[in-house]
Simulated assay, not measured.
Amino acid sequence: MTDQPERLAPLPADWQRCLAVVAHPDDLEYGAAAAVAAWTDRGADVSYLLVTRGEAGIDGLAPDECGALREREQRASAAVVGVSAVEFLDHRDGVVEYGTALRRDLAAAIRRHRPELLVTLNHRETFAGTYWNTPDHRAVGLATLDAAGDAGNRWIFPELLGQGLPPWDGVRWVAVAGSPQPTHAVDVTDGFERGVLSLMEHRTYIEALTDEDPESYVRNFLEMTTGAAADRFGGRPAVTFEVFPR
């Protein structure tokens, strides 16, 4: 008799505002954007915050040119899933440092946007317990988890008060996409195709990443990842999250 995989719980849906915080353009599109499409369909307000512009992501392009290109691709990608608010913090791609400066920037953004749900990317050491995660992903994911608390404490980063940013202690969950330890999932039956189109907007990056046909690469990747969760989520294609309630 084989052990059955533990079922994933549905991600809580009783919220209206979400802020998604990731390190690079394309981080959200490798899965989470299909969930974003489902959320905006029901009228939720979702905003994106990119810590870098991904300027070190394409070997054949100088950082200034690459960063501007990837920003354009990210804005187009966000629009596909109903997101118009896309901000960039201009930390340096590839050398993002976890620390108080990053936590302060994220706490300020949380106070500006006042989300109930925070989304970020995997802060753990590996993807799927196999592939080593990047320093930027780990730093931004961990800082986002910490900034959820920082944003609600007036005595941490008190200078934000002088910037017209009072404490916001309304974050109810932090949902970590791509975690090797998922607890929850979102049905992306209706959002899948827009998830594909959203990732396809990062065409320049994808073409630098693989020799495979871009659409085949994108569709195969998303079918694999959303299908892998189906056995734990009632047979439905899903995006998984590790959820930390607050």
Score class of each variant (00 low, 15 high):
Asp150Lys: 01
Asp150Phe: 11
Asp150Ser: 09
Asp150Val: 01
Ala151Leu: 02
Ala151Trp: 00
Ala151Ile: 02
Gly152Trp: 00
Gly152Glu: 00
Gly152Leu: 02
Arg154Asn: 03
Trp155His: 13
Ile156Thr: 14
Ile156Phe: 06
Ile156Arg: 15
Ile156Cys: 08
Phe157Thr: 00
Phe157Glu: 00
Phe157Val: 00
Leu160Asp: 02
Leu161Trp: 07
Leu161Arg: 13
Gly162Met: 12
Gly162Leu: 15
Gln163His: 07
Gln163Tyr: 00
Gly164Lys: 15
Gly164Ser: 15
Gly164Leu: 14
Leu165Pro: 13
Leu165Cys: 13
Pro166Glu: 15
Pro166Ser: 12
Pro166Trp: 08
Pro167Met: 12
Pro167Thr: 08
Pro167Asp: 10
Trp168Asp: 08
Trp168Cys: 06
Trp168Ala: 05
Trp168Gly: 05
Trp168Asn: 06
Asp169His: 14
Asp169Gly: 15
Asp169Val: 04
Asp169Gln: 13
Gly170Met: 09
Gly170Lys: 11
Val171Ala: 04
Val171Lys: 00
Val171Asp: 00
Arg172Pro: 09
Arg172Trp: 07
Trp173Pro: 01
Val174Cys: 13
Ala175Trp: 04
Ala175Gly: 11
Ala175Asp: 08
Ala175Thr: 09
Ala175Leu: 09
Val176Gly: 03
Ala177Trp: 04
Gly178Phe: 05
Gly178Ala: 11
Gly178Gln: 08
Ser179Ala: 14
Ser179Gly: 04
Pro180Leu: 07
Pro180Ser: 11
Pro182Asn: 14
Thr183Asn: 09
Thr183His: 04
Ala185Asp: 05
Ala185Asn: 07
Val186Asn: 02
Val186Arg: 01
Val186Trp: 01
Val186His: 03
Asp187Cys: 08
Val188Ser: 05
Val188Cys: 07
Val188Gly: 02
Val188Ile: 12
Thr189Lys: 05
Thr189Tyr: 03
Asp190Thr: 12
Gly191Glu: 10
Gly191Ile: 07
Phe192Thr: 03
Glu193Ser: 09
Glu193Lys: 04
Glu193Met: 06
Glu193Cys: 06
Glu193His: 12
Gly195Phe: 11
Gly195Trp: 07
Leu197Met: 11
Ser198Pro: 07
Met200Pro: 03
Met200Val: 02
Glu201Val: 01
His202Asp: 05
His202Val: 08
His202Phe: 11
His202Asn: 08
His202Pro: 06
His202Arg: 10
Arg203Leu: 15
Arg203Lys: 12
Thr204His: 11
Thr204Val: 15
Tyr205His: 11
Tyr205Asp: 02
Ile206Val: 14
Glu207Lys: 02
Glu207Asp: 09
Glu207Gly: 01
Ala208Tyr: 13
Leu209Arg: 15
Leu209Pro: 02
Leu209Glu: 10
Leu209Met: 14
Leu209Ile: 05
Thr210Arg: 08
Asp211Cys: 01
Glu212Gly: 05
Asp213Val: 04
Asp213Phe: 04
Asp213Arg: 09
Asp213Ile: 06
Pro214Ala: 01
Pro214Tyr: 02
Pro214Cys: 00
Glu215Lys: 07
Glu215Asn: 03
Ser216Trp: 06
Ser216Cys: 03
Ser216Gln: 09
Ser216Asn: 07
Val218Asp: 00
Val218Phe: 01
Arg219Asn: 03
Arg219Ser: 06
Arg219Val: 11
Arg219His: 06
Asn220Asp: 14
Phe221Gln: 03
Leu222Ser: 10
Glu223Arg: 15
Glu223Asn: 07
Met224Trp: 15
Thr225Gly: 02
Thr225Met: 14
Thr225Gln: 10
Thr226Met: 01
Thr226Gly: 01
Thr226Lys: 00
Ala228Lys: 10
Ala228Arg: 12
Ala228Pro: 00
